[in-house]
Every structure is written in structure tokens, then in C-alpha cells.
Design a protein around this nucleic acid. Structure first.
Lengths: 146, 146
DNA sequence: GCATTATGCATAGCATGCTATCTGATTCGC
DNA sequence: GCGAATCAGATAGCATGCTATGCATAATGC
């Protein structure tokens, strides 16, 4: 029955992610954004007019989660949904001017948060941390049904 | 405007934590437990009769979050609340037999999840990852008001 | 000793994540 | 070409996290 939360990767990962989310939330709240909305905007700033399914695939969240996030973003005037050319089931998610105007400030806020979090790490340590986290993510995504 | 989510520590940390939580949730669901409840049990298995405030401090979540988690745990018969000896505001959170009986299986499930996640990492890499994550957690906790 | 302040906890309201299930549109198999 | 399977999306219901508030009890300060 030896289980120390401090030595549990899952526990520490959860703690770290909560602190990241909290820091980002605080920084982008003045822009009227929440963390999940920022992630959606990151994709749309790169390529506008994606479908909900595209966003689900790129951000690796469940479709229902994305549906709810998009509903809040539409409510807040960050996106509009337009008809899809070839598929009447799907809709293209399009940025509003308001959302486009937030890009620079929001990205600055996120970079700020990352910088604060990683301040005590050398460049080599940062690279190593990223590589290890990607490896762990890869292992868990591969072992989906296990 | 160069911001790649794959190179953002916060994004990858969030993704990793979601995968950890999902894997743990799947493994402990048969025991009737959810991840946050498991974390509370970890503390109570170590020291029964803690107050809500003790748990808030040890698990670093907000008091309101803990209050809600404990309400669900009481509903599910995992804990009971007893009067505190010296402070009539506080209540001691005590394990039920049901909760005590889950310890071995739940800890096994969590170790299983950690093992799956870290399978592709050497012992040295695991140690390094833990050290780096602790460092990042420490930096963000110190920079509370920043 | 009594008013002020601090502490322990509960509740309301919200965002984000999940599973399960439903509808409507498209595609496949025959 | 038509029924079955699949796919895009919405919705319901729940757990976990947060902030902001309110209430009751303790502790402090004068």
C-alpha cells in the first residue's frame, strides 16, 4: 500500500495542468476568453472555416465537449457558423472580427504563462520536459483500449 | 504570431493530464470511484479523520471544490462526517468500511495507469520527468500573485 | 466582555471534460 | 435505387475545477 502522490506521475501532471490552466485563465480573462476557447481560436487563427469534427481531431477532445465550447463561443460573439458547401450536416466555424482582434494579446498571454511556469528551467531542461511529455502522451494515446 | 500548441508546455500538460485522468477514471470506475474521490481517499487512508481544510491544503484545490467532492463521497457512502472535538465549525472526515476495503484495488489501478503512461520511459527518464514537473509546479505555486 | 476579524464550511453559478443517446444527412452494399 | 450503416452535430446528465458569497463559530483586541 505504498503510494505517494508526490511520486505519482498522474497526480503531479494533474496538479501542473491545473496550475497552468489557472494562470492562463487569469491572463486571458480580461480579453473575455477562457482556456478552452483560446485553444479553439489557436486552430481557427491558423485556418478559419474548420468544421467541428476538424477541431475535435486537432484538439483531441470529445465531440460533445467541443459542441458545448463552440456554443459558448457563439454566444460570446467569437465565432459564427456558416453552411458547408458540400455537406448539409456540417457547418464551417468562422472567426468574427472580434475574435481576430484578440490574436496578438491572447498569444502574448499564453507565452507569458509558459515563460512563468518554465522560468526555473534551462533551455535544455525545457526541451527535455517537452520531449518526455510528448512521449507520455503518445504512450497513452496508443494504449487507448488498454 | 508564432504559437504552436505542440511546443506549448501548458497545452501539452493539459493534454497529458486529461489522458491520465481518463485512464484512471476507466480503471477505478468499477470500484465506484472517480479520480478526485481517489485523491481524497489517498489522504484519508494515510490519516483518517482529517478536516476539510486539511484536505484542501494537502491536495491544493479550492475549498469549494473539496466541499462538493466530499458531498458526493458522503452520498456514495465513502465517508462520514463526525463532530470535531474542539471546534464546532469543523468536522472530521472519516472513512467508512466500504472506503477502507477499496484501498488495495484502487492503488493497484493507479499504479497500473502510471505504468502504462510511462512504459516507454527509462527509469532515468521517469525520474527526470518527475523532477522537472515538480520544478514547474513549484515555480507556478510561488508565482501565485503574478 | 463585547465588537471586530478570522476561520470552517456550504451554496450558487459557471467552464470544461466525460459518456450516452438522439436527429438528420450522407454513403455503402446489394 | 433503397435500406442499412455511418457520420456531423446537439443535448442530457454527471464530475471536477473555479470565483464569489453567505453563515456560523472562534479568536482577538481594546
Amino acid at each position: 500500500m505504498t503510494f505517494s502522490k508526490e511520486h505519482s506521475a498522474g497526480f503531479v501532471a494533474n496538479h501542473m495542468a491545473r496550475l497552468f490552466a489557472h494562470g492562463l485563465a487569469r491572463r486571458i480573462a480580461p480579453l473575455g476568453l477562457a482556456p478552452a476557447q483560446f485553444m479553439v481560436l489557436l486552430e481557427l487563427w491558423q485556418e478559419d472555416g474548420l468544421t467541428q469534427h476538424d477541431l475535435v481531431t486537432r484538439l483531441d477532445v470529445e465531440q460533445a465537449t467541443m459542441s458545448n465550447t463552440l456554443r459558448r463561443m457563439e454566444r460570446d460573439g467569437l465565432i459564427v457558423r456558416r453552411a458547408h458547401d458540400h455537406d448539409r450536416r456540417a457547418r464551417r466555424i468562422c472567426l468574427t472580427d472580434k475574435a481576430r482582434a484578440l490574436q496578438a494579446a491572447a498569444i502574448r498571454a499564453a507565452q507569458d504563462q509558459n515563460e512563468t511556469a518554465l522560468a526555473s528551467l534551462s533551455d535544455a531542461e525545457r526541451a527535455h520536459l517537452m520531449a518526455l511529455m510528448h512521449k507520455v502522451v503518445g504512450a497513452m494515446r496508443r494504449n487507448w483500449g488498454d
